[in-house]
Nucleic acid binder design. Structure first.
Lengths: 207, 207
DNA sequence: ACCTGAACACCGTTCAAGT
DNA sequence: ACCTGAACACCGTTCAAGT
């Protein structure tokens, strides 16, 4: 009767999951403090209070830790995209859409600890880059659907291009915004929204 | 009379410089083919046709090779900025300025071999990141001067913010543009110019 | 059942020995 | 005067031995 083992197993599972979480949060912190180059597996293990061998019990290799951190961050973006999708009804104005979507994305960028080094890693490490690029495709797919619903265009190529531009411009500027002081941040966000709105208005007027 | 050695030294110097160039171009090519992770010093040395020891005669360490590649690329940007600065006279229109500056920057991005992995390295490796960030400051200084001359603003903080936004948006979108097919590239550049122009027009109208 | 850390393979860098 | 490549230090990963 395996079920009888459950009470015994559960704490084990929980402790294992907690240790996994600890490794991830320690790595995220170290990424911001010591940087990518000095981030050794032994350092991660020691700071987590375990041995290297145990570290490799939870993760098959060093990059799988960074992979898990990346996945977590991309998941947060997915939640934001869902919210943006739900908000963007047929009759919503471009201004409202832009304000909501940029603000919602800003939250994701603000909440993630050590997002700057993580983003750099994602574009530099092949394994993470692949994950990131696949995820970009998903974003572009969702945004295309939304832009179509908002009557910005119906041409798949145009929708895909606008979505990619929306993604890259938003990404680049939000990374600046989160490291800016309060007043500057407000202006930067206002500039970003203005640019995105111009982009979408122009596309819509051509449609 | 040391001067008598010059004819003897010159060919040596030249051969040394040529070897240095070979190492740099081999590294740039390898960066695009094998990627950052498999770019070992022994591989660079072998592909250049020299030993590791000789490689270290020309460069003090691995990153100094990538540092030299980065400097070369940043130099090309400086030439472009000079051209943009010379083009941007007091009475030039925002449309002409935007068209010229984006087109001129596009050339720099198009001409550089292996620019994508190089850009990733520059943001990921601390030594290169520092070089890149210092250079960004120079770009922002020059662009601020230009934006001021074009009567877009006279507030240093506003000028600096607009310059940074100009830089980041242009950078992000040009990286997409250079990997796009002809027709798509045209549309992407048109979108970029439209966004930049909206940004500058808005700032100017507030001035 | 889970953990440890010495041991192995590999990469950046050096330097004694070669031409 | 310049080049070579074995040797060293260090990091990612494994696995025999411990509890």
């Amino acid at each position: 009767m395996p079920r009888i083992l459950a009470p015994r197993n559960l704490p084990m599972q929980q402790r294992a999951l907690e240790k996994r979480e600890m490794i991830l949060s320690v790595t995220a912190k170290l990424l911001g403090t010591v940087g990518q180059d000095d981030l050794t597996t032994i350092l991660i293990a020691n700071k987590t209070g375990i041995s290297v061998g145990t570290l490799y019990h939870y993760f098959p290799n060093k990059y799988s830790i960074l992979f898990a951190l990346s996945q977590r961050w991309l998941n947060e973006i997915d939640y934001a995209l869902d919210d943006i999708d739900n908000f963007s009804l047929k009759d919503v104005s471009l201004r409202d859409f832009t304000n909501y979507s940029i603000d919602r994305m800003l939250n994701v960028y603000t909440d993630q600890e050590g997002i700057l080094p993580l983003v750099q890693l994602m574009s530099g490490v092949p394994e993470l880059k692949e994950l990131d690029e696949e995820h970009d495709e998903k974003i572009i797919f969702t945004m295309s659907k939304i832009f179509n619903r908002l009557s910005i265009s119906s041409n798949p190529l145009t929708l895909s291009r606008l979505s990619q531009t929306w993604l890259e411009v938003t990404h680049a500027i939000l990374l600046i915004a989160i490291t800016s002081k309060k007043d500057d941040k407000k202006s930067i966000l206002s500039d970003l929204k203005h640019m995105i709105m111009s982009l979408l208005e122009k596309a819509k007027s051509n449609f």
